[in-house]
Write a protein that binds this DNA or RNA. Structure first.
Lengths: 188, 188
DNA sequence: GTCTATATTCGGATAGAC
DNA sequence: GTCTATCCGAATATAGAC
């Protein structure tokens, strides 16, 4: 693996664990085994490296979500597959976590991958809801974009509840709760 | 206002804006106008002061939520009142935000107020759902605890989506989506 | 490309005078 | 109770040799 790749991967994992404010260049160097001079040779500094790491995490998250949502079956089943994917709940979401960090939100380079990921995800799920409605799988009355936002929010909020209680249980409750509600719109 | 109170309030606002890792004793001193010696006289250090600030924020959040949930009306209306409360969405949730901070999660003194707040809130809403079901307002099939977790998660996740896109809109979509889903369980 | 040296400011305190 | 002085390591680099 290239030096750049090792730096990016180490930064990805540190951002996930500790956020942007909590991640230092020194910690990145130690985790990657790359020296200080090398790091500053390949990247202009912490923001530059973080931006590269976030772009890669965003790509990866999109790939994973798309795999769940493209599963064979109806709209409900595909949303359920996305919601029920096996997650390391207590680690939280590597993308959603960044939304809490003021330095990330304030820097367009850093916020862009976060925004784009959630825009894409909400759109993708909204399309699925609309499709389910068009083909009669869902009763009328569901608003695709609103429903999609709620589905994505349940996952992101589920992480918050899980970490708050140091247990995956509230996350799973929230998922079951959301699918229970969505299920009421399914036609026989 | 007492020196302690000024320290606590300044810490509350800084924790809300910048999180635990991002909040320094010096910043607290500057915002509160309290000198270094004073700060360390009244509090043992940053963790001690943060714990006091979080306990106070938890109390306040609970008071605000209880006011919404105790509004006159049925279960649906009271949940809707909670969800539709006027929020400064882009600031995020002062309690939920802390769940992302590894140093908060790792310290029982700091995590306790966060955990207790969400435990209480989920329980309070679950009771409301159960009540609505007992008196026939909701169709059978709603699981109170799961539904409550989903409701709370939508709010917390809504904050994440809003901050990611630097707009309150996704938050409002998620709220509308959740209420749309819950509405399907209402009896005429 | 990588290494070591150096620099500046901040973080998070402790000590002791007033 | 509050103030100033002091401390030590971390954060985030820059400079220049190899």
């Amino acid at each position: 693996m290239s030096t750049q790749d090792r730096l990016i991967e180490s930064t990805q994992s540190l951002l996930w664990e500790r956020g942007y404010v909590g991640t230092s260049p020194k910690a990145i160097q130690q985790r990657s085994g790359v020296g200080q001079g090398s790091m500053y040779h390949h990247f202009a500094g912490k923001p530059d490296l973080a931006a590269a790491a976030l772009r890669r995490s965003a790509e990866q998250m999109r790939g994973i979500a798309e795999a769940d949502l493209a599963v064979p079956g109806g709209a409900y089943d595909r949303i359920a597959a996305y919601l029920h994917r096996d997650r390391e709940v207590l680690r939280g979401c590597r993308i959603g976590r960044m939304a809490q960090d003021p330095d990330v939100i304030a820097d367009p380079q850093l916020r862009a991958p976060v925004e784009e990921t959630f825009d894409w995800l909400r759109g993708r799920i909204a399309d699925l809801v609309a499709e389910g409605q068009a083909n009669g799988e869902f009763a009328p009355g569901l608003h695709p974009a609103d429903t999609a936002a709620a589905v994505v929010a349940v996952v992101q909020g589920g992480y918050v509840l899980a970490r708050a209680s140091n247990s995956a249980e509230p996350f799973e409750q929230a998922i079951r709760g959301a699918l229970g509600l969505l299920g009421a719109y399914r036609r026989a």
